[in-house]
């Protein structure tokens, strides 16, 4: 078994309104920052022991499918790296 960190990034699908991101964008503009757009995402860093990188990714994917993301509004991506 090897120690891995699987990073699951959950984003709203393109076109789904994100009122919190919009509010954050406006707050940045009030601070006189100049920006075209702002997107927010949730990042979950999951430490786990697995037989292989593929196994770690498979388990992280199942976590995303079953809880972390809601397929109606979310896309997600997974990155796996070995942990020191």
């Amino acid at each position: 078994m090897t120690a891995y960190t699987a990073t699951v990034t959950v984003r709203l699908k393109s076109g789904v309104l994100d009122p919190e991101a919009e509010t954050t964008r406006r707050a940045l503009e009030r601070l006189e920052f100049d920006l075209d757009a702002l997107r927010a995402a949730d990042v979950f860093e999951i430490d786990l022991e697995a037989d292989s990188s593929d196994d770690a990714e498979r388990r992280a994917r199942e976590m995303a499918e079953r809880l972390l993301a809601n397929p109606t509004i979310h896309d997600y991506e997974i990155a796996v790296r070995e942990r020191e």
């Binding site: 009122p19 919190e20 509004i73």
Partner: peptide, 9 residues
């Protein structure tokens, strides 16, 4: 479907 954050936040 899903019920998510109000448009006006």
């Amino acid at each position: 479907g899903i019920f998510t954050v109000n448009e006006g936040a």
